[in-house]
């Protein structure tokens, strides 16, 4: 994807990155000779600026990714679960979803396109059992992805184990970070090292009126999320504002806060700017 850009330094950077990737993933060496194959090797967001921003052209398969709710949403991580479900809904294959507590509502996942027949749930209780179960899943090549809901701290060694298992089998791993009520909220903080390839934070944003030209009509339109890519290997942090998953799991970009060429801005002003055009149109 970097070959499209004309700057010579960028293409050299891409070549170096590919070399590093070959070093990091010996099993994928043969396939990476022809350059990254975005559609096969990645779960795509379907939102071009996000997919362009990521080296694999989406969330790389056969890797570990971390998703957490922002702020007070860390506890329930409902939007984070919907984001993962929506991403997985658009690719074929069975999914293993490992839970600490069974509070996930299957009809809610079906509402973003992840059919109940595709998901196997495992209720593991303790964190260690959750991680061990996810690892079992990531070692099973028949799966599309394994998702684990983890509360509390997660060690670098644990995430590295999961990442290696995902790499060996090609199954995509997701860790959905949660924090039970009363626990310190800083569990998924920036100070905690992780082997996850990308780390995301999903936060809610106020949505515009359902009908832009009739703002007084009550009702709800599509929800809005702010997706913060706050850590990713080899990629600058970035924020995106999207409309939440629809019935087929698709996202839609509202506005680009930052793409590959612009450094990410803090969210506050940009978030309100996202809704600006439609509001003005509403008069």
């Amino acid at each position: 994807m970097f070959f499209m850009l004309s700057l010579p330094s960028l293409s050299r950077l891409a070549a170096l990155r590919a070399q590093v990737a070959r070093l990091e993933r010996p099993s994928a060496a043969s396939s990476s000779d022809a350059g990254p194959a975005p559609s096969a090797a990645a779960l795509r967001f379907g939102v071009p600026p996000i997919d362009r921003h990521l080296p694999a052209g989406g969330l790389a398969r056969g890797a570990l990714h971390e998703v957490a709710g922002a702020g007070t949403e860390l506890e329930h991580g409902a939007a984070a679960a919907l984001l993962i479900a929506g991403l997985l809904a658009r690719a074929p294959g069975p999914v293993l979803w490992v839970l600490e507590r069974a509070d996930l509502f299957a009809p809610g996942l079906a509402a973003v396109g992840l059919a109940p027949g595709r998901v196997i749930y495992a209720e593991a209780g303790r964190v260690e059992a959750v991680l061990a179960s996810l690892e079992e899943g990531l070692r099973h090549p028949g799966l599309l992805a394994g998702v684990a809901e983890v509360s509390g701290r997660l060690s670098l060694a644990a995430t590295r184990r999961l990442h290696l298992a995902a790499e060996a089998s090609g199954v995509t791993g997701f860790v959905l970070r949660r924090a039970w009520r009363g626990a310190a909220e800083a569990t998924a903080g920036p100070g905690e090292p992780s082997a996850a390839l990308t780390r995301w934070r999903v936060g809610a944003l106020p949505s515009p009126p359902p009908f832009a030209d009739a703002p007084d009509v009550p009702g709800l339109g599509r929800a809005r999320w702010q997706l913060d890519l706050w850590r990713a290997r080899g990629v600058a942090p970035a924020s995106f504002v999207v409309e939440a998953c629809d019935a087929k799991g698709r996202l839609r970009l509202v506005t680009v806060l930052a793409d590959g060429s612009v450094a990410a801005e803090p969210d506050g002003s940009a978030g309100s700017g996202a809704g600006e055009p439609s509001r003005r149109a509403a008069g």
């Binding site: 329930h76 991580g77 409902a78 939007a79 679960a81 919907l82 479900a85 509070d103 996930l104 509502f105 009809p107 809610g108 996942l109 079906a110 509402a111 709800l220």
Partner: peptide, 8 residues
């Protein structure tokens, strides 16, 4: 509308 988390 059906939620992702159901409180029980």
């Amino acid at each position: 509308p059906r939620p992702a988390r159901l409180l029980c």
